[in-house]
Design a protein around this nucleic acid. Structure first.
Lengths: 118, 118
DNA sequence: CGGGATCCACTACGATACTG
DNA sequence: CAGTATCGTAGTGGATCCCG
């Protein structure tokens, strides 16, 4: 109990941000939600490699930090939808640019790894 | 030996980027280098809380990924300078935006944590 | 001064099983 | 369907000592 006492609130903004969107899956979760609402099961399929435990944990932290909202439909079978909050959406331009940068780097590294290519 | 086989090169750009600039100190290291060259000891002082082991490790990875350059002056006492590469500099706008976002969030969370404040 | 080497703690992460 | 519980692993980070 009292699971709330986590992540010690750093003074540095860069640090603060990385604690919120860092980790193994949070970036990809946010990115997948850019187009709109997704259900838990849909996230599990599109965020490849994630286990239900890690997905749940990441989603809970993102929710606690106000980056996504969680809507539960009380029905059978259960249905839970996740959506970016306004605060979460503010991160999209950042993620988009970061992704462009990464794409470029991945290409360069690929070329460098090719033998016999000048 | 063969320490190079690390970080399995993800297909997703977001993942790729976070593996490069994620971790506990990389973000702050890059951010500190935004103003220009810094020596190893200067980084140790300004990146608060970092140990020499972790600083060295982070700097090596950043160097391997082409985000910073390392210049060794062969003299006594030794002197090593670290500088952002062009690729590394490309990340500065993102880090800057991320930091602005974080600053805002930190303020909001601070207000929410204040009792008796409307 | 700028590290490397070693040992150890912690926790992030993963596999599996189970549930309302 | 959307989780929770439990256990085990692996990687990350820290303390300390040593070196050119």
């Amino acid at each position: 109990m009292d699971k709330k006492i986590k992540r010690p609130l750093p003074k540095c903004g860069i640090d603060y941000a990385f604690q919120r969107i860092g980790g193994k899956y949070k970036g990809r979760i946010l990115w997948r939600l850019r187009a709109g609402t997704l259900r838990y099961g849909e996230l599990r399929k599109t965020v490849t490699g994630v286990t239900s435990k890690m997905l749940t944990q990441a989603l809970r932290e993102l929710e606690d930090d106000g980056l996504i909202s969680r809507k539960v439909y009380v029905e059978v079978p259960p249905k839970v939808e996740y959506t970016l909050t306004e605060t979460g959406k503010e991160l999209l331009p950042f993620l988009s640019l970061l992704r462009d940068w990464a794409k470029e780097q991945m290409l360069i590294n690929q070329v460098e790894a090719m033998p016999g290519r000048s």
